[in-house]
Design a protein around this nucleic acid. Structure first.
Lengths: 152, 152
DNA sequence: ATTGAAACACTCAGCTT
DNA sequence: AAGCTGAGTGTTTCAAT
């Protein structure tokens, strides 16, 4: 992971459809070398996948909320994980430090559907309470920053 | 936006590198027709961009936190937006309903660097308080669910 | 890391349903 | 309007340097 790899990642974050010729130009490498580096980044799992960023509103997922879950016991185990993963509207699930135990990110089409999802969340073993944060407007959502310090 | 478009989006979310031949096979269309539909999805902004999913740990961004900001005044305006956007470690910023005013997602390499970012956040005009949630472990982060109901 | 060549995929125009 | 087909172009991919 040197500065060229980071530059390649930054380029791909912005546009993963560009050719290896333009990728190479952007980082000062031939197309073949750029290709080889990207191949290795994929192989090593630094690049997890190439994906498409879908507009939530266009996909009828205009309601975004974050829900903090209180738990009666330790919930950092596979059964909890799987129970949450079974709820498709949950996009992220994290174990957190602080007064709650878990934080989940939920996207639904309406607040009615959010309510239905919350009902399912409440039914997950160990969940004793929820605190819901509804997003009114998203300022921005962007790729992870790769600049600044980088080791290895 | 019919069921074929949704199937195409679901396919691309999982793997945006696949050929239009395989995309077409997955949804029962020729490569040319699949291509034409994807082109229109991009044109209409349903597909915002094709990007690469980078492993945060590999990119020295292993510390994930969510910070809720209390505000002394309305912060839903461009100056606030821009001030937050100027902090590269902030990956998302949302206006929220509830006791706080804003929610931001921050990725840093260390908790020390998180502290430095929080100092910058506190310096943003109108911010009167912060509540930080540090993620201990991420269960999962996955693409937005596109199934279920879909209109238009 | 580069080069060059072969294989492959994308792209577009014209045609059909 | 939407899908199919086929030819031409550009890109990926790989072996040799």
């Amino acid at each position: 992971m040197d500065s060229i790899d980071r530059a390649l990642l930054a380029q791909l974050q912005v546009d993963a459809t560009q050719s290896y010729v333009s990728l190479g130009q952007a980082v000062g490498l031939s197309a073949g070398s750029a290709h080889e580096r990207v191949r290795k980044l994929r192989e090593r799992g630094v690049i997890r996948r190439t994906t498409v960023d879908v507009d939530p509103a266009a996909a009828s997922r205009g309601v975004l909320s974050y829900v903090m879950l209180q738990a009666s016991a330790w919930m950092g185990d596979p059964p909890t994980r799987d129970a949450l993963a079974d709820i498709p509207e949950i996009q992220e699930a994290h174990i957190i430090a602080g007064s709650a135990s878990l934080l989940v990110k939920i996207r639904t089409s309406t607040t009615e559907q959010l309510q239905a999802v919350l009902r399912r969340v409440f039914a997950v073993d160990g969940v004793t309470g929820t605190q819901t944060i509804v997003v009114l407007e998203t300022f921005f959502e962007r790729p992870m920053y790769l600049g600044g310090n980088g080791s290895s």
